[in-house]
Every structure is written in structure tokens, then in C-alpha cells.
């Protein structure tokens, strides 16, 4: 067993787990944070994307042990109380989700990207989502949602 101690959505969490425990299952099964979904075996679909020290990573391709001592944000940590994160708001406003399974990963990938590039073009957003697959939306409204959120986040800071 290996000891893993992480800050998740602002709270300290720790547990002893098998070394092979993937971060996604540590979050889902050890910590009960089931908002992060697993979709593939191969680091392809991006459903499991979370923020590690503020940057997007695929939690299915990382050991929980690799996150020890670091800070994680999952979809459950995006809203502040009842106040949805601007990305969550804009996904709703723009019908950026259908079945919703890829959505947490899309939102976390977008949150990371908008920190790097707060005012992207449509093409930028599409490229930034190259590691996130969706089977329902054809991406059109996901891209629209992210551009809309970028606008409202910029507006909020101005």
C-alpha cells in the first residue's frame, strides 16, 4: 500500500491505496467524488480530466500516488455553493451537453485552457479540445459554450 494525501477542492483527503490505483478511481471510489468519469483505457477520451495544481490532466493515466502532496480540482469543486462556475453556466445556456458523460472532462479541460488563453478564437478552442471526445454534441455547442464563458469571464474581470 502507498499513502496518498491530496488537497481536493480545497479539502485535505488522505488514504492508503494499492500503488496501482489510478487517480480516477482514487477520486471516484476512495473519496466518493464520482463526478469525474472514466471513458477509455487509453488516455484518448478526456472524460476523466481534472486539474492538478491548476492544470488539466487525465486522471485515468496517472497513479493516485503521483498526485500525493498536490492540489486537485474536480467538477464538484467548480461551483461555489449554488453559484455555478461561468463554464457550467455557459454550457447550460448554450446546450453544450446532451448525455453529459464527457461534460466534466470538457469543462475541466476548458478551465485549464482559459487560464492559459483567456480570449481564444474558435479554432484555438477546437484545438485545445483535441484530447476530449464527445459523441453527442458534434462539439459545436461545446465550442460555443467555451467561447461564451471566455467572454463572460473576461467581462467579470474587467
Amino acid at each position: 500500500m502507498t499513502h496518498v494525501s491530496v488537497t481536493v477542492n480545497g479539502a485535505m483527503r488522505e488514504a492508503d491505496v494499492e500503488p496501482r490505483t489510478l487517480l480516477v478511481y482514487f477520486l471516484r471510489e476512495t473519496l466518493g467524488l464520482t463526478g469525474t468519469n472514466a471513458g477509455c483505457d487509453t488516455s484518448s477520451c478526456g472524460s476523466c480530466t481534472v486539474l492538478l495544481d491548476g492544470e488539466s490532466v487525465k486522471s485515468c493515466t496517472m497513479l493516485a500516488a503521483q498526485a500525493d502532496g498536490r492540489e486537485l480540482t474536480t467538477i464538484e469543486g467548480m461551483a461555489e455553493g449554488d453559484q455555478l462556475h461561468p463554464l457550467q453556466e455557459s454550457f447550460r445556456r448554450n446546450h453544450g451537453l446532451q448525455c453529459g458523460y464527457c461534460t466534466p472532462g470538457m469543462i475541466m479541460a476548458a478551465a485549464s485552457y482559459l487560464k492559459e488563453n483567456p480570449s481564444p478564437s474558435e479554432g484555438d478552442v477546437r484545438l485545445a479540445l483535441e484530447g476530449n471526445l464527445c459523441r453527442c454534441t458534434g462539439y459545436q455547442n461545446i465550442v460555443k459554450s467555451i467561447l461564451d464563458a471566455a467572454g463572460s469571464m473576461a467581462g467579470a474581470e474587467a
Binding site: R28, T34, G35, L84, F91, R92, G100, I107
Partner: peptide, 23 residues
């Protein structure tokens, strides 16, 4: 009318009931 979806709040906040969330 383009009524916004009733389904979205749970799906957007990580509180969906997908089968792997059941234990």
C-alpha cells in the same frame, strides 16, 4: 421555444447517476 434543459444542473456539477456511480 429554446427552453434551457432541466437535465443540466446535475450533469454539470458532477452529481449524475451514471451506473458506475452506484455502490
Amino acid at each position: 421555444q429554446p427552453v434551457l434543459r432541466k437535465e443540466d444542473p446535475e450533469l454539470l456539477t458532477g452529481h449524475a447517476s451514471y451506473i458506475d456511480n452506484w455502490t
